[in-house]
Design a protein around this nucleic acid. Structure first.
Lengths: 257, 257
DNA sequence: TCTAAAAAGCCACATAAAGTCACATTAAAG
DNA sequence: CTTTAATGTGACTTTATGTGGCTTTTTAGA
């Protein structure tokens, strides 16, 4: 008795996955008239090839598509406006430093059609994005990668930052405290952002309006002054809003280009 | 007794393949009234001509859609096999170093379902891929990004490499010389790969068969010895093949260790 | 929140289909 | 009539799949 080709099954599994987003082991077993074990072996194989990810009970397609990672960003429009506003501050020939984060990623996207720039970043998505332009010289500040940020943090990163001097630094923040200070989730991240600021002649903080209502534990110890906070809107009623306005110059990014 | 022409059979096999995407050995044997062995010989021949790819039980046409990211990768199947073979050398708890390149990316893909590993890499796609697993601790060896490799090279990278010691290093190569040495495109890349090897207790070179016919200008000055060259097949007639086989132990991916 | 049943996963083993290789056979070519 | 290329055959190896026992995860109910 001849046996149906396993590759056909694999192809159809991937095709189904493409259409439906996810598949279950039991459905596939029934559909192809094979045992669940066989389907599991198929999925395991395809997962090893990086064509899907297995989950309990089945598999789903990998969410590597840039559309998805962008789709999940909170307040994407506001962040894009901030990114465009920040990009206007960057002149040709400058060396700049871009911190990790979704807001700073928007800045990087606004810079992709530029040339003659040197950009230092600890963010993998930003580094990859800018390197692909082939016109922007990109330096990745390496170190241990924090999976949630998809960026490098740690001793190595701090040492690398110390080796460079840039014209501008664009840093993010985890939140803004009632006293108007920028705060972060961890001591390390806060220190690293402070060092980034110290390596630049001028530092801009990029934070969209959602940050005004977020409280994170560690203040970022910024020694030098901040050139400005760039944000999209100032929420009224938040104590952080007025306190920050007293401490730093604020630039409001125009929403539409 | 007259015998039907083999070329006619070959043509019809390819035609069927074009229409159906895949064919099985047993179907073809029945259809042409020849033995399975004959069909296998046909498929093997056509596969060597690059007109189809054989799979267990039959064959399928190549130009399908091998996923968006790996579409442009030459000899993706061979590289995937090398990646899987290399992944078998990695035990839980190890710290390993993975060089940039499409072959080493295949290794990273084969490692995505693993945990309890520390991986150092200078490649952005590899770093991003492994960081997203959230189970593999990833360290990005930063530096200036080479757009074509999407990986970091340079003084910073060299200094970072020097700070680490790993169990295994997996490095790529631009080509293999007539004397069996591994070669690279630039002096810097060659030096960096040598330093990677020096940071590891054991070093494996991953190079698929296409490298045996590529000549690049700079030999990689590997001081310590190479544990093995992992490749998918050894092209006959290439002077590099025999020379390399005399210099290094060779592991063929797909065969047993 | 805890607990037990159900579902899913994993592993080792069994088996049949598929593959490989050496050698025999046969048709075509010289 | 020999030589050669293609094909078939049979022994053996490898691969794919199924099965059953056991563990892990999920779900539902107390």
């Amino acid at each position: 008795m001849s046996r149906p080709l396993a590759v056909d099954r694999h192809g159809q599994i991937l095709q189904t996955l493409e259409a439906q987003g996810s598949v279950s082991v039991s459905d596939l077993a029934e559909r192809f008239n094979v045992s669940m074990e066989t389907i599991r072996r198929d999925l395991k194989l395809l997962a090893e090839e990086g064509r899907l990810v297995t989950v309990h009970g089945g598999a789903h397609r990998l969410s590597n598509e840039p559309s998805l990672s962008r789709r999940t960003i909170e307040n994407a429009e506001g962040k894009a406006a901030i990114g465009r506003a920040a990009a206007e501050l960057v002149d040709d020939g400058m060396a700049i430093l871009i911190d990790s984060g979704s807001t700073t990623l928007a800045l990087a996207q606004a810079l992709t059609n530029r040339g003659d720039l040197t950009v230092l970043t600890n963010s993998l998505p930003i580094g990859l994005l800018l390197a692909r332009t082939k016109t922007i010289k990109t330096v990745l500040l390496g170190g241990e990668i924090e999976p949630n940020d998809e960026a490098a943090f740690g001793l190595d990163t701090l040492e690398l930052i110390a080796k460079y001097r840039v014209d501008l630094a664009f840093i993010g923040a985890g939140g803004i405290s009632e006293t108007g200070e920028f705060t972060d989730y961890t001591r390390l991240a806060a220190e690293q952002r402070a060092r980034m600021a110290a390596a630049a002649k001028a530092t801009y903080v990029l934070a969209d309006y959602t940050k005004f209502s977020k409280r994170t534990p560690v203040p970022i110890p910024i020694a030098s002054s901040i050139a400005a906070l760039i944000t999209d809107q100032l929420p009224k009623g938040e104590p952080a809003t007025e306190a920050a306005a007293r401490l730093w110059p604020i630039r409001l990014a125009g929403s539409k280009p």
